[in-house]
Write a protein that binds this DNA or RNA. Structure first.
Lengths: 347, 347
DNA sequence: CTGAAAGCGCTTACAG
DNA sequence: CTGAAAGCGCTTACAG
């Protein structure tokens, strides 16, 4: 094998045929007489030519055969492999890619122009900062799908009915007789855990992203239907993985009999903190969370969750960009997964 | 914005400059007079030109800015996101990619020629079937690194000193007075769990891949140094995730006081099976496993493991192909992580 | 500072 | 069935 990489023209020359014929041997072998084909193949073998370079082919066909997943801005490539909810999502995306024979590329944003330069056929934008990614994707005429956000009838998107799920969770607790609630909300920015005491106003910023605000709205709707106001519910707002949030919430809502959260880690942390304080779940306190993970089923007691349909969301997202149909906005219904962390209100 | 995607030549025409000048505006803005630059930029804006198409640029530069991860043949794209050991590895690979501003593409093998056609700058080959991937990668003159396998001084590779780790694990148990062992080995093919009773021959096929055979060799070395023979040790060989293997092993090695395994799941399964049978660990039975995961620390008792250096392996693999140095074969030393699953031999 | 020209590796009508 | 030619979108010496 040579040091210099041989090209199609080298093979054609060595075989004594034109470049087109050599190309046909690889792209449309049936168009070439067997004898010539053998000569070209022998020359390729001889020169160490492994077939058409995908780079040249790409320029003609425009098809990369891969889709790009863009993590939120703060997350590096490696972090996508550490977040269990993202992994559920990506596993499902990967299944669809596999079915289409496509690769799945996790994009780096270190150079800040990954959308403009990535060699992929389509994009999946995950949450938060995706709005700024839309323009470069549009300019490249590449299809993309947004997750957990909608951007009008011309864009592809998939999200879960967070509001309905949250409403169902709160209704479930109301039906069990609970009247005194506390809420653990998401903060989607760097910064310390925040307390929003009962009685304060409840602007949208009390929850982080649109999808989080939907959850809060769902909670509020169910409370309102039972004659309760969100304004009277103490809220602690924290990073999804914050370790101090559960303690702060229990400190500032001593009378609560039920905690509504926005994520599965928050729910698990409340369970752990309650155990530490000797608060019995569900006898003294009920807890609900969002997004189901195996950990929620394994915890003691099991955690009642709103099913985030994460895998389904990934499947739909990938199909939306891989199957080339017209833009659609998919909203997945959700439901409650009842486990041991919710029970009748005490007293 | 137009329906047809504008190209550089369209922008050049609209701005009344040559194609080269238009190109320079994007690639080397300092080479172009401010006035012309503004004209070109205005034209680009007007036409909806988002910057040079990466496809054309690729053909010149040859640089994709991404590396490809090739899972074992039986695994689809999505499965890479479900295997906890792979995820540890990929997270570390992703960190290095991020540091280089490169993307990380999980390759599909559905079309069976992913190595020949994938648009990446380099490959990471994971285990098992990687030998068949070497030739197409060589033909494309693309760097690649093999994991857990070596292929001579011209190839990049990274592996862990499995033999040394296994030897240390067995020596640890011998030092605790254990003399009656049982081994849970890896089967790397589809098929039922196999029993290799004591007294039989021990061909290499009693373990699956080269790296598994190294583990077995390490166990054998330590036993031999203590005057014991691997031939006298009952071995059960099973898929890393098989559920029946631990039971079969305990059934057929009733006198064993120590179990040597090849993977963390196997170790956890032995702990679970022992608990079910009322066998106290480590009082009645000691257990060691390979590759450390959070689950090993959380189990009851904690699982003593040989550190598989999985994250480090990923980091090295990525650096080996991304930093463009000469081929190297890296062997990572390993060590024992002592936890509660190993103790003095009973009696 | 600017532009005409060649070329990156390949494919695909088209003419013979 | 085969080959000469044009072109996919861009960049980069090179000449002016």
């Amino acid at each position: 094998m040579n040091i210099l990489k041989p090209t199609l023209i080298d093979v054609a020359r060595a075989a004594g045929v034109s470049r087109s014929t050599a190309s046909n041997v690889f792209a449309h072998p049936e168009r070439v007489r067997a004898e010539l084909r053998a000569r070209v193949e022998a020359a390729a073998q001889e020169l160490g030519y492994g077939g058409p370079d995908p780079t040249g082919r790409l320029l003609r066909s425009g098809k990369v055969n891969a889709i790009g997943f863009k993590p939120p801005a703060e997350m590096g490539v490696g972090d996508s492999f550490r977040n269990p909810v993202f992994l559920q999502f990506l596993a499902a995306v990967g299944d669809v890619c596999e079915a289409h024979g496509a690769g799945l590329m996790v994009l780096s944003d270190a150079k800040r122009d990954s959308i403009r330069t990535a060699l992929v056929d389509a994009f999946i934008f995950s949450r938060v900062d995706q709005l700024s990614d839309v323009e470069p994707a549009l300019l490249r005429r590449l299809p993309f799908v947004m997750v957990d956000v909608e951007a009008g009838p011309d864009s592809r998107s998939v999200r879960v009915d967070s509001r309905g799920g949250a409403r169902a969770a709160a209704e479930h607790l109301l039906g069990l007789g609970h009247r005194r609630f506390a809420i653990l909300s998401f903060l989607r920015a760097f910064g310390p855990t925040r307390l929003h005491p009962a009685g304060g106003p409840r602007p949208p910023e009390v929850a982080g992203m649109p999808t989080d605000q939907e959850k809060l709205a769902g909670y509020a709707e169910a409370l309102a239907a039972a004659g309760l106001s969100l304004d009277a519910v103490p809220i602690v707002q924290a990073d999804p993985w914050a370790e101090d949030a559960a303690g702060m919430l229990l400190d500032h809502a001593p009378g609560a009999t039920a905690v509504l959260t926005m994520g599965v880690m928050q729910g698990l942390r409340v369970l752990a903190e309650a155990r530490r304080r000797g608060i019995a779940v569900p006898r003294d306190l009920s807890v609900v969370a969002f997004n189901d993970l195996p950990e929620a089923a394994r915890s003691e007691p099991g955690l009642t969750t709103v099913d985030g349909r994460t895998g389904e969301k990934g499947r739909v997202a990938a199909e939306l960009v891989l199957e080339g149909g017209p833009p659609r906005q998919v909203v997945l219904p959700t439901g409650l997964i009842l486990r041991g962390s919710t029970g009748p209100a005490p007293g």
